[in-house]
Amino acid sequence: MTDKLFQPFVLNEKITLNNRIAMAPLTRCMADDSLVPTQQMADYYARRADAGLIISEAAIIRPDGQGYPNTPGLFTQEQIAGWRKVTDAVHKNGGKIFAQLWHTGRVAHPHFWKGEFALGASAERLEGTVPRMRELSYVTPKPATKQDIAQLVKDYAQAAENAVEAGFDGIELHGANGYLLDQFMHYNVNTREDEYGGSAENMTRFPLEVVDAVADRIGMERTALRISPGAYFLLEGDPRDRQVFEYLLSELQTRDLAYLHIGLFDDTMEFDYLDGNATDFVRRNYTKTLMGVGGYSAETGEAAISNNRFDLVAIGRPFIANPDYIERVKSGQPVKAYSEEMLAELI
């Protein structure tokens, strides 16, 4: 390895990262019953502050966005105060941290907010049950009305403002992995016939409205986005999806996001309708700061960066197993293997 990974990287005029390695967002379900981050979470993130950027586990923008137990929120003052303990701890250790913001859409369950329905792009129900709560089967979502969508845009912007109040350096919109924003961008689950469905321009309208509303509230330089052009999780792909993401990327190219992040668990996957790898598809259509992810080590990530496949690399599970991941890689120490038993506690 060279030391390219460990050189500072300028995201924009306001944000410079200490290195090119990001800690990927990792859902841990460790908030308290009011969805407030705990001191244990603050300690967990602080131990990993030598990553160039920490992307937090996804934070819910409002109560009906919850799809998993004990995932933290960013919509109450108590939650904001809890996150402030996290960001202060990270900053004290010299790190930077973005809040990932999500609404899970049809993956949400009314059980969590004692509601009557979940919102989705269309009335397309997800088969299966809620992880960690197998007694809860998914429900048929209510298609979001135009009024619902307008309110959601406002709520994303407010959550972004809450994140800045909580001390985050920026936010990453979770527009990937089959959650609400992603649901609008795939034909498999978007069967709408209004201005939010049926064409590439319509199917990207809501996500782009959210990007622009958040950027207007906190600045484009603090706004990032994660996307999944290749559908593989919680929804299925459709050949027409390619046109949707080509249009989305052409629009994003005109904006100055902090970065664009690929939503993948395994970057070796290929998608026929993308002519292969999703990361390479995005790179062909987007020339600005791109974050790759999906099974990379520091060594393979650096090789991909050197080959101009992306600019930053996000590392996930190895950060769970190795709070000192950056130091281990720098000093040539072996990296501990991840195991599912490690999910039982925050170390």
Results as ranks from 00 to 15, higher is better:
residue 304 A to S: 13
residue 313 V to Q: 06
residue 270 E to W: 02
residue 320 I to N: 03
residue 256 D to S: 13
residue 272 D to G: 08
residue 250 S to P: 13
residue 240 R to C: 00
residue 247 Y to D: 05
residue 317 R to G: 09
residue 266 D to Y: 03
residue 288 K to V: 08
residue 234 L to N: 14
residue 280 D to V: 05
residue 253 Q to Y: 09
residue 228 S to H: 08
residue 234 L to M: 15
residue 278 A to V: 05
residue 292 G to I: 06
residue 225 L to E: 05
residue 294 G to Y: 08
residue 227 I to Y: 05
residue 232 Y to E: 07
residue 270 E to V: 13
residue 242 R to M: 05
residue 306 S to Y: 05
residue 315 I to R: 07
residue 272 D to K: 13
residue 262 I to M: 15
residue 254 T to V: 01
residue 266 D to F: 00
residue 265 F to H: 12
residue 321 A to Q: 03
residue 282 V to A: 11
residue 290 L to N: 02
residue 254 T to Y: 02
residue 249 L to V: 13
residue 292 G to W: 03
residue 238 D to H: 15
residue 260 L to V: 07
residue 268 T to V: 09
residue 225 L to C: 04
residue 326 I to Q: 08
residue 259 Y to K: 05
residue 237 G to N: 03
residue 324 D to L: 04
residue 285 N to T: 11
residue 298 A to D: 12
residue 301 G to L: 13
residue 326 I to G: 04
residue 255 R to Y: 05
residue 267 D to M: 00
residue 279 T to H: 00
residue 274 L to S: 06
residue 310 F to V: 00
residue 256 D to C: 08
residue 284 R to I: 02
residue 249 L to M: 15
residue 267 D to R: 06
residue 237 G to L: 05
residue 250 S to R: 10
residue 280 D to R: 11
residue 259 Y to V: 01
residue 310 F to S: 04
residue 245 F to R: 00
residue 279 T to I: 12
residue 282 V to M: 13
residue 303 A to R: 15
residue 289 T to L: 09
residue 309 R to P: 04
residue 286 Y to L: 07
residue 326 I to R: 05
residue 306 S to L: 14
residue 235 L to G: 04
residue 311 D to L: 00
residue 228 S to G: 14
residue 249 L to W: 11
residue 236 E to M: 09
residue 290 L to P: 07
residue 233 F to Y: 14
residue 304 A to L: 09
residue 254 T to K: 15
residue 243 Q to R: 09
residue 228 S to F: 07
residue 294 G to A: 10
residue 243 Q to A: 14
residue 242 R to E: 14
residue 260 L to H: 00
residue 247 Y to I: 10
residue 227 I to H: 02
residue 301 G to E: 00
residue 327 E to A: 12
